[in-house]
Design a protein around this nucleic acid. Structure first.
Length: 445
DNA sequence: TGAGATGATTTGAC
DNA sequence: GTCAAATCATCTCA
């Protein structure tokens, strides 16, 4: 132990009849702390031969210089605000205080701070592992310092007791000496805390930076989002439920690829970006809009054809029977229910939002056909429905019809102020005659 | 390698 | 809280 080697110098300087110079204690603690930090506590070579002489010489110089400065700091210090800040930060980061699942709370906090993208498990676990590592090092070092402090205090007390044989030592002097030791170890602890905080800060910034590194969504995910966007162009503000559904649906396709998922906030980001960029450059997006319109129409046709085939296969003698149950359901009063049922009927989907053959698409079918969703009319004949749908598709695909020769997805969803028109009064070409009672899945606007 | 595309973040208004 | 708008930072592709 270092103290065994330093001890003689300490004793010799005390036995000489002088009181302990505070600088000596400070120097010894400096050596002691360096000793601990270097991890050389059990390395005898550290204080052997010339090294010991150098240390003792340095001790003398330090003791002379520091004895002058330390005296002023002997009074009881008030709680250090910097130390409190460090303590609070370490507590908040999950480094200090009780174990919080290996810093998972801090990782979650960091993830939340980065926009709720807490799904990237690889980066998350990496952050957690590194934080745990920091926590372990911090606690090990802290323990070492505390142990060293106690050992050193005990040692000094023993020496004082020894010195008391040669001169009277008041309890106040002992108290003062212990105070000096504790203060010195506190300052060393503060350095440790400071270093730990810096390490956490660096880790955290790297972690957040890494999260900023974006990956493009998969093609399927982008397609799903685009399909929704262009099929709700009159009001491209998906509700929370719709966003969740979209996120889920996108995640399914994405997870087949890189293994990441898409969160609701990412869906929100995507729609925010899309709205802005669409509005800024409608011309550029025209082609894309047409593409998705055609795709939507084709999907609808396929779904309808499949529905027809199913109904015919199930009951060849009564072609309409496949929709009998639907007819009953169409007695529902809610327009939304009808809309959803229509959507489900053609897509086979049971989702809460209408993808991709829903919303405006079916509303346009209704309006172009001039029919309303009366149960008897809708359920009258499957073939007529398919014909109607085909008519819509043919109308939609070119869209140079009597409605004014507009191209598909002309920016009718945007009002004069550059904002999207309200959901209740859309004038999008997708649903040109859509009435004020139209129902969208969007509720966010 | 640079330009454009794109996901994320920031800022300010409501 | 959400939104638009501006901006940043990275990715993609010719």
């Amino acid at each position: 132990m270092t103290l065994l080697f330093i001890g003689p110098y300490f004793i010799s300087s005390s036995v000489s009849g002088k009181s302990f110079p505070h600088g000596t204690i400070d120097t010894m603690m400096f050596i002691y702390s360096v000793h601990i930090t270097c991890g050389q506590l059990n390395d005898p070579s550290f204080v052997s031969g010339r090294t010991l002489k150098t240390i003792l010489l340095l001790s003398l110089i330090f003791s002379f210089c520091l004895s002058l400065s330390i005296r002023g700091a002997q009074e009881e210090d008030p709680p250090d605000p910097q130390l409190m800040r460090l303590d609070n930060m370490l507590l908040a980061e999950g480094v200090a205080g009780p174990e919080k699942g290996g810093g998972s709370a801090a990782a979650a906090a960091a993830a939340a701070a980065s926009g709720g993208a807490a799904d990237n498990s690889i980066e998350h676990s990496d952050y957690r592992a590194k934080l745990t590592q920091i926590r372990q090092i911090y606690h090990t070092e802290l323990e070492k310092y505390e142990q060293a402090c106690n050992e050193f205090t005990t040692h000094v007390m023993n020496l004082l007791r020894e010195q008391s044989r040669t001169r009277p030592i008041s309890p106040k002097e002992i108290e003062r000496m212990v105070g000096i030791i504790h203060r010195k170890f506190s300052s060393i602890q503060m350095q440790l805390k400071q270093s730990t905080c810096e390490a956490v800060m660096i880790l955290r910034s790297r972690f957040l930076d890494a999260r900023r590194k974006r990956r493009n969504f998969s093609k399927q995910a982008t397609e799903i989002l685009n399909e929704y966007f262009y099929s709700h162009l009159s009001n491209p503000y998906p509700s929370e439920e719709a966003k969740e559904e979209l996120a889920k649906k996108c995640s399914i396709t994405v997870s087949q690829g890189v293994g990441s998922t898409i969160t609701v906030s990412q869906v929100s980001n995507w729609f925010g970006n899309k709205r802005i960029r669409y509005k800024k450059n409608i011309g550029k997006f025209q082609e894309e809009a047409n593409l998705y319109a055609a795709k939507t129409a084709v999907n609808a046709a396929h779904a309808a054809a499949a529905a027809v085939q199913n109904s015919q296969a199930n009951s060849p003698t009564t072609p309409n029977s496949g929709f009998q149950m639907k007819d009953e359901e169409f007695q529902l009063d809610s327009a939304e229910s009808k809309n959803t049922l229509l959507s489900n009927m053609f897509t086979g989907s049971s989702g809460s939002f209408n993808l991709p053959n829903s919303g405006d698409m079916f509303l346009s079918m209704q309006s172009l056909n001039g029919d309303s969703y009366q149960g008897a009319q809708v359920g009258a004949n499957v073939q007529s429905q398919v014909d109607t749908l085909r008519h819509v598709i043919s109308q939609t695909a070119g869209y140079n019809d009597a409605l004014g020769g507009n191209t598909m997805y002309s920016p009718h969803g945007l009002n004069a102020n550059g904002g999207w028109q309200d959901a209740t009064t859309p004038s999008s070409v997708i649903s040109p005659t859509e009435g004020p009672g139209s129902v969208h899945s969007d509720t966010s606007n």
